[in-house]
Computed example of a mutant assay.
Amino acid sequence: MTGNIYISGQIGTFDGATGVTLADVIAQVKKQPKATAFNVHINSEGGLVDVGFDIYNYLKSVGKPLTTIGSGIVASIATVIFMAGSKRQLRENTSFMVHLPWGSSMGTADELEQYADQLRAVEKKLIAFYKKSLNLNEQALIPLLRNETWLTPNQLTALGFTTSRLIPAAPKAYLKPKFNMKGNFSERDRHWMESLFTKVLGKFGHGSIMNKVVQDATGIEIDFTDLPDDAVPEIGAEATIDGEPAQGEYVMPEGQTYVFEAGVLTEIIEEDAAEEVAMLRSENKTLKRQLNSIKGEVLALKRQVGSKYSFDAKKASNRRPAENDRTAGLREYLRSKKGK
């Protein structure tokens, strides 16, 4: 069986936004103990370098065949995670970008120099990683990274990022309108990155934000047709699965359970609550079995009591003729006395 791992959105939690962590990836793997191989689905603009390398190292340590599949966008540190697969594929219209790490800092000149040294250390780590993974020298790599290069499918194959042809794109979009990178950004940084991403959307023909599509822990796609891609599903949202109204319960990679009735999201059960609900349902089933058992015992008692009353009634009816005979004999005796 081939399991599925989903890495969607920013890598790491920072700047007030929750992202994909190493713990999230480990949890997905642990929930699929029977998997003999994994497909790692990546749709990420990047994020924290350390977290990205942690996820990459963990995936490599799983010891099972990995196929990484990029869709929507694979950028920044997400490209490092992408390299964890022995087979590496992209869906059509997927944006792929590499660059040098960057961020911003405030402080004294000494503090800024210290931050610059740390940033250069991260640069060296990334360059060394790409050199080893792609078998390229620094003269080939550094210009690509320095210029924030968006690579074409042919370039990706030639450089060694991908190992097979593009996967035909499904008629859905997974792109997000914003993304965060490593560091504490100023408003100017955010506006610059948002404008850059807007240009990318225009370049690849995504002029508007598409509907929200999420995948559960088994890979089933849930399409929230009325929600924009950056929205968070809430109770009351309508969704379809394979074109049909969503129905039933679906466990998400983060541990939440979405409950649908006739295409409407009626309940979102958090992971801890889901365990409690499961326990309560189990207890409810046990109580129902006990109640049915008690009902059976009551019916049996009723049958026994009914049978006893019927038996006593028969005995009483059997006694009546004897009682009538005695009464008749008494009357005959009295008549004979009168005659005397």
Rank of each mutant, 00 (worst) to 15 (best):
M1R: 08
M1P: 03
M1T: 04
T2S: 08
I5P: 05
Y6K: 01
S8A: 04
F14I: 00
F14N: 01
G16H: 02
G16L: 04
L22I: 04
V25H: 14
Q28C: 10
P33A: 08
A37M: 02
V40A: 04
V40E: 00
I42C: 12
N43A: 08
S44K: 03
D50T: 11
F53Q: 13
D54Q: 13
K60Y: 02
S61Q: 08
V62Y: 12
G63S: 11
L66K: 01
G70F: 07
V74D: 01
I77F: 11
T79F: 07
T79G: 13
I81G: 01
M83L: 05
A84D: 02
R91G: 09
E92M: 02
M97H: 05
L100W: 00
L100Q: 02
S104T: 13
A109V: 00
E111P: 05
L112F: 06
L112I: 11
A116V: 04
D117H: 00
D117T: 02
D117Q: 00
A121E: 00
V122H: 00
K124T: 15
L126K: 00
A128N: 15
F129H: 11
K132F: 11
S133T: 03
L134E: 11
L136P: 07
E138W: 09
Q139E: 11
A140F: 07
P143S: 13
L144H: 14
N147S: 14
N147L: 13
T149E: 03
T149V: 04
L151S: 07
L151R: 01
Q155P: 07
T157C: 02
S164I: 01
P168D: 12
P168I: 10
P168H: 06
A169I: 06
K176V: 05
F179K: 04
M181D: 11
G183Q: 06
N184M: 11
F185R: 08
S186P: 10
E187L: 02
M193S: 05
S195A: 10
S195C: 08
F197A: 10
V200S: 10
L201W: 03
G205Q: 09
G207D: 09
I209V: 15
V213R: 14
E221H: 14
E221S: 14
D226N: 09
A231S: 08
V232T: 09
D242A: 15
G243I: 11
P245N: 12
A246L: 03
E249S: 12
Y250G: 13
V251L: 10
E254H: 13
E254M: 14
T257W: 07
F260G: 09
G263Y: 06
I268P: 10
E271M: 05
A274M: 07
M279S: 10
T286W: 03
Q290I: 00
Q290F: 08
N292T: 03
S293K: 15
K302S: 15
Q304M: 03
G306C: 05
G306K: 01
S310C: 07
F311A: 15
D312N: 04
A313C: 09
K314W: 09
K315Y: 12
A328G: 05
L330S: 13
E332C: 12
E332P: 05
R335M: 15
S336P: 08
K337F: 01
K338C: 13
G339Y: 07
G339K: 15
